[in-house]
Design a protein around this nucleic acid. Structure first.
Lengths: 239, 239
DNA sequence: TCCTTGTCAAGAGCACTGCTCTCGGATGTG
DNA sequence: CACATCCGAGAGCAGTGCTCTTGACAAGGA
């Protein structure tokens, strides 16, 4: 027992160090607006750079840890926002809640958003561990779509059948995300998801040079238009 | 005359050097998959790094030149593709042509696409010169929308009026891009543009982990769905 | 109690980066 | 021919990721 306790102490201290290093890295990423530098992180912690390598074998490994955390944090934010809507049959409301959670999280942590949805880091290849947490937001949106369909609240707008070649892969995605809906509805959902992602990227990466200033309002309108495109009834009052 | 000829010679050699440096930089960006390194560019050209500084005052300046070139190349590709459609009243055909030009260019030069539409480089701020070339693709798409509207070929689907707060800025964009259409149509166009951008980014930045393999087909379907969303009649046969 | 073992921080060092400076040679201009 | 300009080379500075070695410390077993 004693040796296991001792091991646990070691492990706990180590886990705290891991968290501390990641937090400092996140802060530097956000504040300095510079690249992630292991040496800078070490300096900030009053350590020498080689000491950090006791905890992360390379800069990429630290980056991977940050990316994983970011995926999970974003996924959790979406899940919570989706679950917080009391009226489960208010599908448009649920859709908007998740869409806004998406943007709110990204706007609050633009650098972490860039980490997971920006251009990939040159030499870096995302390990397979990032796949599962990366689809959590899509799963949340898919559940809303599925519920709306099963409640008969999914309008049949734009039920254009997708090309046959795409059907198998669409079905595979659908089975994971929204098994009950049609392939055409799944297409609309993927498009809506793509649009939201594009909207947030446009905003965060500064592709709107002062042309649109009310970015929150513009995003809200886009999310509502995408709800219409999806065919989700918007029973609450339209703003 | 002689001095102007001589000056021209000097200027021409200098211009060639500028192009050469940019070409080597582009090649390294594409092949090595690494960050842009002035020293590596110089090494590749058989020069010493300090010599490159005769032509570009800093790494950022070289980066800016590459970004400007990329914007203009993409804009030109879109303009050519849009102009190559003989039947000017085939608005869906024009839309699809430009949409595919967009993706084709990006797929052929993923690193240059990442340069202009990926996450911004940490310390880097895009100079104002990049604004004008950056909107060239949007202008092309706007012209199609405007032509379709004036030909009465713009269906009134999803003519949801945008919130009043957004109207002034929407009008400002509209006046530059598609002056004759309604604000609601302009909204749909911006959304469609955002979706296309998101789709290309998802593809190039590897956000589809094997879930979709027929990326060209998937993009084509998205572009067609966006044409429907826009309300552009698709008179040619649907594939 | 002594001693082994694992863990950790520190420091030196390598190869690379962006960038600055100076120096010497080439080139075109008067 | 003399002058001015331009350009390439080289040294050097501060920073980076990463490796290796060294010394300190704590935990566990004999």
């Amino acid at each position: 027992m004693t040796e296991r306790t001792a091991g646990s102490i070691r492990a706990r201290v180590r886990a705290e160090m891991l968290e501390e290093i990641k937090n400092v890295a996140r802060r530097q990423l956000a504040e300095d607006g510079t690249d992630l530098s292991l040496r800078a992180v070490a300096r900030d912690m009053g350590m020498v750079s080689s000491a950090v390598y006791r905890y992360f074998a390379s800069r990429d490994e630290l980056l991977t840890a940050l990316i994983l955390d970011a995926y999970n944090a974003l996924g959790e934010a979406c899940e919570k926002a989706g679950a917080a809507v009391e009226d489960r049959s208010d599908f448009a409301g649920r859709w908007l809640a998740v869409a806004h959670a998406l943007r709110d999280w990204a706007v609050a942590r633009p650098h972490e958003y860039a980490l997971i949805y920006g251009s990939p880091v040159p030499g870096y290849a995302a390990p397979q561990d990032t796949v599962e947490p990366s689809i959590r937001p899509v799963v949340v949106l898919g559940a809303i779509l599925n519920d709306a369909h099963n409640a008969g609240a999914l309008a049949g707008v734009f039920a254009t059948p997708p090309p046959k070649a795409l059907l198998p892969e669409l079905r595979a995605i659908k089975d994971v995300v929204a098994p009950d809906v049609s392939e055409a509805a799944m297409v609309r959902a993927l498009i809506a998801w793509t649009e939201l992602f594009g909207a947030i990227s446009f905003e965060l990466f500064g592709r709107f040079n002062d042309t649109i200033t009310d970015l929150a309002g513009w995003y809200d309108h886009q999310a509502r238009m995408m709800a219409l495109f999806l065919g989700i009834d918007d029973q609450p009052a339209h703003v």
